[in-house]
Amino acid sequence: MAGIGQGPGPDAVFAAKLAEGVFEIQKCGGCGTHVFHPRVICPACGSADLGWIAPTGRGTVYARTVVRRKPERGGDYNVVLVDLEEGVRMMSRIDGIAHDQIVAGLKVTASIGEGAEGDPAVVFRPE
């Protein structure tokens, strides 16, 4: 059981897991609510009993935008909000699909890819 005052905070725990190739979110031992992004206490009930679980990785695109950037600066890229099956939402990117094919409702699956600075980040691909 996680607890206040024990070891590193939830941001550091999440980052350490991600660096090892593990994507986990929190689940409240008090009320059962899934929590992302990582928090110290459950935003649904206030409990500090937040443990870590592996999500199914399956999600649905809630909203998307395509940031327009000149080709010489790397070209366009997409930014999305994905709702995971567990009921939490996260910002991410969809790889392996043309930007204009990404629409709300698209079913996607998580994997660990690279973020803006080459750091590990959760990204998605179409199912």
């Binding site: 992004h37 909203a63 998307r64 935008t65 940031v67 930014v79 709300a104 973020g115 803006a116 980040a121």
Partner: peptide, 25 residues
């Protein structure tokens, strides 16, 4: 922290996401 890896334009992309959702819904 949990948005930076995806390089949304601040604050523009946030509003773009809201506009996209309003258009969809």
């Amino acid at each position: 922290t949990y948005e930076a890896p995806y390089k949304p334009l601040f604050p523009l992309s946030s509003y773009a996401l809201a506009a996209d959702r309003h258009m969809t819904q």
